[in-house]
């Protein structure tokens, strides 16, 4: 089975103070730690598990510059057989349609049976990459999958719905499946894996040849800014003990629960 997984290298903003660049439209990325998008970690793990179960060959794809290659090496270290990175300066700040065009370009004429990607990325959270790629390839897609099993030329997936529900769907291959977190437990990278990755190829494709223009791509980022702050919380300050006493008083007064 020919399997592919798409991963993205994103800034880790969990504990960072974010600054907007002078153009007022992009993030100042310098100094931020970057890592593999959380959803993609699950997609990668799922791809490796499937490869281990049904056999075949796993290619990891990434649209990004050389610094982003770190996430591709992670793919190789945990079990991908080869990696492909496509980039062109024109892709910096690209919108989901342009990224999808680049993804389509990276796949080229290779026919993959199964393509996995994360349900969304933690930076912009569009969640469009998977379905748009499927459309460009003319194959099936299912979004937000939290359980899957390959059965011959089909795959049985569970899509996550709201409120703890799910729906089981059978999909014909080839297909693009976008993966929701929690589907598996992504593994740690091992030293042996890193060493094995050394011998695996990373093909670098020039994105300049890919036609990024599309009607869909007519999206213009007008601004990026701090969200308007509402009233926000009243902050309690002091030592943990002082704060705890304030909390206790609040719970007694307003909460009416003690």
């Amino acid at each position: 089975m020919k399997i592919a997984v798409f991963v993205k290298h994103v800034p880790d903003v969990a504990e960072a103070d974010l600054e907007v660049a002078a153009d007022g439209r992009t993030l100042k990325g310098a100094g931020l730690p970057f890592e593999m998008n959380e959803w993609d970690r699950f997609a990668l793990e799922e791809a490796v598990l499937i490869k281990d179960e049904v056999g075949g060959d796993l290619t990891a794809f990434l649209i990004g510059d050389e610094a982003a290659e770190e996430s591709l090496r992670r793919c190789l270290a945990v079990g991908a057989d080869r990696a492909v990175r496509l980039w062109d300066e024109a892709l910096s700040g690209a919108n989901p349609f342009e990224i999808a065009a680049a993804m389509r370009g990276a796949v080229g004429d290779d026919n993959y049976d199964l393509i996995l990607c994360g349900a969304q990325s933690s930076d912009y959270g569009y969640g469009m990459g998977g379905p748009l790629l499927a459309e460009a390839l003319g194959i099936n897609s299912v979004a937000l999958v939290n359980k899957m099993k390959v059965e011959g030329s089909k795959v049985l997936v569970t899509r996550e719905l709201e409120g703890g529900w799910g729906e089981e769907v059978e999909v014909n291959l080839p297909a693009v499946i976008s993966i929701q977190t929690g589907i598996n437990e992504p593994r740690y990278v091992s030293i042996l894996g890193i060493k094995k990755a050394r011998k695996k190829p990373i093909d670098v494709l020039d994105g300049a040849g890919v036609d990024l223009s599309s009607e869909g791509g007519k999206l213009v980022v007008e601004s990026l800014q701090a969200p308007p702050l509402g009233e926000g919380a009243e902050f309690l300050e002091g030592s943990p003990e002082e704060v705890a006493e304030r909390c206790l008083a609040l719970l007694k007064e307003a909460g009416g629960v003690l």
């Binding site: 290659e69 770190e70 090496r73 740690y188």
Partner: peptide, 16 residues
Amino acid sequence: SEQIDIQKAAREFARG
């Protein structure tokens, strides 16, 4: 890049 990967692998394991 391999050394950076090793450093990251150790960091992730230790933090986790």
